[in-house]
Design a protein around this nucleic acid. Sequence first.
DNA 1: CCGCGATGTGAATCCTTCC
DNA 2: AGGAAGGATTCACATCGCG
Lengths: 370, 370
Amino acid sequence: MKTMTKKKSTAVLPLNTILAGDCIEAMNSLPEESVDLIFADPPYNLQLKGDLHRPDNSRVDAVDDHWDQFSSFAVYDKFTREWLKAARRLLKPNGAIWVIGSYHNIFRVGASLQDAGYWILNDVVWRKSNPMPNFRGKRFTNAHETMIWASKSEGAKYTFNYEALKALNEGIQMRSDWVLPICNGGERLKDSNGDKAHPTQKPEGLLHRVLVGSTNPGDVVLDPFFGTGTTGAVAKMLGRDWIGIEREEAYREVATRRIASVRKFDREALQVSTSKRAEPRVPFGQLVERGMLRPGETLTSPSGKIAKVRADGTLIGDDVKGSIHQVGAHLEGAPSCNGWTYWHFRREGKTVSIDVLRQQIRAEMTDRPH
Amino acid sequence: MKTMTKKKSTAVLPLNTILAGDCIEAMNSLPEESVDLIFADPPYNLQLKGDLHRPDNSRVDAVDDHWDQFSSFAVYDKFTREWLKAARRLLKPNGAIWVIGSYHNIFRVGASLQDAGYWILNDVVWRKSNPMPNFRGKRFTNAHETMIWASKSEGAKYTFNYEALKALNEGIQMRSDWVLPICNGGERLKDSNGDKAHPTQKPEGLLHRVLVGSTNPGDVVLDPFFGTGTTGAVAKMLGRDWIGIEREEAYREVATRRIASVRKFDREALQVSTSKRAEPRVPFGQLVERGMLRPGETLTSPSGKIAKVRADGTLIGDDVKGSIHQVGAHLEGAPSCNGWTYWHFRREGKTVSIDVLRQQIRAEMTDRPH
DNA sequence: CCGCGATGTGAATCCTTCC
DNA sequence: AGGAAGGATTCACATCGCG
C-alpha cells in the first residue's frame, strides 16, 4: 500500500475494474489527475446507428443537404468534445492519450484534440496485413486505421520508451506506420452463438506496442470505450493497472471473463531495454579522483585533436579550457559535443573511449545497494 | 479543340498555364463547375520552434518559409475553409479533390472538408520508404503523410479507374496505403545554387497514382498550391489538361521550365511506383506482440543454452541481455549468430525453431486481400 | 570500370537538469 | 523562471572521390 505523499491521491481509484454506464459521467466521477494513459476507441458511427444517429432520423438525400450533414457532424463533435474534456481532466500532467479511428471520425477527433489543448505527438497508422477487400471495386481497399498519440499539453514530459520500441523493431527506430494483422482466429472473442462478441475488437499486438511504448509497469491505464477489454487484458499481462468503462452489460461480461483468464508476465520479462538517459550521471571528475585517469594525461579525439586532463576534471587544449564537452565542441567548431564518446585515452598500446570508464563506475553503482 | 457540348463550358479555362497570385482569388475568377479534379498540397502549418541538429551535429534544413506561418489554428481554419469553398465551386458535380497533409494540419483539413459538404471516399497513407528519422529519439519516425480523397458531395459519380490501379499494383486491388520514396535524386529540382528549388516537392509517383486512378485522359486537373508543378508535369505526361495557381514567382518559373521539358506519355513516374519485392524483414518483437511467444517464455538452443523472452522482444540470459542474435553470439562465444535458426521453443512436447513463426508472419504479409 | 567508404540530406511541432 | 551546461541522438539513399 502506498502512502499518500501527493496532493492528488490515487487511493480512491477503482483499479482493475470495469465501470458501468456512460463514459463521460463515469470519468467525471473519478479524481482528477489520476491516470497515466488513456486509450480510446470511440464509436465511429456518424449516421449509421446507436445513440449518435441524426436527431430527426431522416434519410440523407444525396447531393446538397449540407445542413443535414452538418447537424449530424455537430452531434458527433459535441460528444467528442465532451468525452475528450472529461478525459483530459483525469490525466496526470505528464499523461497522454491514444485515440483510434477511421476517416469517418478521425479528422473530427484530431481537430477536437487540438482545440481541447492536447498536443499531438504523432499520428500512427495501423496498416492491416489482412484487410477486407473493397468488394464492389469502387474505392481503395480500406487497409488502415489511424491512431493519434497526444500529450495532455504542449511541453509535457510524456512517457516514451524509445529503446524498448527500438528493440521490438529489432534495432531500428520504430516508425509511425505499424503493420499488424486484424484480430481474428483464436484471439477473436465469440459469443454463445459462435458469432463475434464485438464488431471492432482490436488486436492485442496493437495494445502491446502502445502500452510498452508509452507506459511503465505500475502505471494506470484507462479505456473509456472498453468493449471486450483488450486494453485491460494487455495491461494486466504487462503489469499495468487498468480501469475500463463500458455501457453494454454483454461486453462487460465478456471482458470480465477474458481478463480473469489472463496471466501477468514474469517480472523479469517486463524489464525492458532502457536508454542511457535513464542511467545515473557520472561527473568526469570522478575518473580523475579515482585514479582511472591521471592529471596531465593526454586525451585524443577520432579527428586527431588533443587535450590534457587537469586535476579538477576539466580539460585544457591549445587555446581552450573547460569541460570535456565544451572543449570537444570548441575544437570541432560544433554547437555541442558529447565528450564521453568524443575523447579517448591510451592503455597498453590501445585507444579506449573514456565512456568505458564511466561504464565501470556505473556497474559498481548498481552492484550494491546504497 | 473541343466542341462545346455542355452547359458549363470549359472554353474560357486557362488550360495548361500557371496563374499568378492568391489561390482563392484566382479560383474565384474561374468559371464554376469546370474542373474534374483538384489536387491540393496546402501549407502544413508545421509550427517549428528552434533548430534541430542531427547526431553528427549537422543542421536540419527546416521548412521555415513565410507561407507556412499561421498565427493560430483559428487563422489556419479560416484559410482552409475559404480555399476549400472556392475549390468546391470550381468542381464539376462529379468532380473530386485530393488534399495531402501531416498530423499538423490534416485533421483540420479533413473536418473542414466534411463541413463544406465534400464526401470523403478514402484516406490514403503515403508510407515513405526513406523518411527522415527522429533524431532525438523522442517520438516515432514521422514516416508517412495522409491524403484525403473526397467527392464533391455524397452520391456523386466520381471517377475511379479500378482496373488501371489494380494493374499498377501487380494485379492486386490497390490498398489505402502506398509505399513510395520521397522525392530526391535526379527528380528533385534544384535552383541555380544547387539547393532544392522548393522545400516540399512531392514525388511524381504519388501524382501518377492519383491521376491514373481518379481522372481520365482529357480531364482538367487544378492544383491551387502548384509549387514546382509536379501535378502539371504528371498531368501532361498522362494526357490530362492542368491549371496551376502559384503565388511565388520563383516557383512559377521553375515549374514552367519543368513542364515544358516533359513529353506526353513519358513513363518515368510509372517506373518509380512499381515495387521491388524483397523478403519482408520481420522483427523478432512481432512474435511477442502477436502472442506467438509469451514474455517470460524460455527459448533453448541446440547446444543446450537457455534464455528468456522479454516484453520488448529482447532476450535475457544468465549474464547477458540483447537481441536474439546478440545473446546467441554471446552464449556461443561467436562473433555473430543467426538467432532465427539458433533459438527454439516448445509446443505440445515438441521443440520448434522460432524461424517457423517468422515464416507464418511472412505468409500473412504476402496474402492477397481476397 | 567496379567497389567501398566518406559525406550529405529529407514537411520535424525532436532534451534535461541545475543553479 | 530563465539561462547555462551536460550530454544523448539517425535511416535510407544518393553522390562522389579514391584505389
